[in-house]
Computed example of a mutant assay.
Amino acid sequence: MCSKLETAMQSLIEVFHSYSSKEGDKNKLNKGEMKNLLQEELSEFLTACKEPDVADSIMKELDENADGEVDFQEFVVLVVALTVACNCFLEAQGCKE
């Protein structure tokens, strides 16, 4: 039986590859794939953001090597940053035990 952390890591890998495998390089997200991932997997985040071009901004920030695609390592940077932000928000709200 997998631990919660192992399950979370497996889910992260599976989500990335379920979007990256749709077009082109199966190990990278192009702009369209990234936008779909954000809209389908992080819709509440996008709604709360209220920035009309947030998906484009995220893509630009994540694409460290400026190749127009986001690899798994660049994608994980987004997930970690959002997770840290959510943890800070929950701590500030007193929601964390």
Rank of each mutant, 00 (worst) to 15 (best):
V80M: 07
A66T: 02
A48N: 12
A66Y: 00
N65C: 07
V80Q: 00
D53I: 09
A55K: 08
F75R: 09
A8Y: 02
L82K: 03
E23S: 08
E14W: 04
C95H: 12
K26I: 08
K31E: 07
A8I: 08
S11D: 07
P52K: 12
E97V: 07
C95P: 00
Q93T: 11
L38M: 15
K26F: 01
E97D: 12
S43R: 09
Q10F: 06
G94A: 11
F89N: 12
L82G: 04
G94P: 01
D56F: 05
Q39V: 10
V76K: 06
N27H: 13
I13P: 03
E44W: 06
E74P: 08
L12C: 14
K28C: 06
L42T: 00
A92F: 11
K96E: 09
G32F: 05
L37Q: 06
F16C: 05
L29Q: 11
E6I: 01
H17K: 03
E51C: 10
K26Y: 05
K50R: 15
F72E: 08
K60A: 14
D71Y: 09
L46S: 02
K4D: 05
K96T: 13
Y19N: 04
N36E: 04
C2G: 01
A81Y: 10
A92D: 10
N87Y: 14
C95Y: 15
K22H: 11
Q73G: 11
Q93K: 14
F75I: 05
Q10C: 01
L82N: 09
A85S: 15
K22C: 11
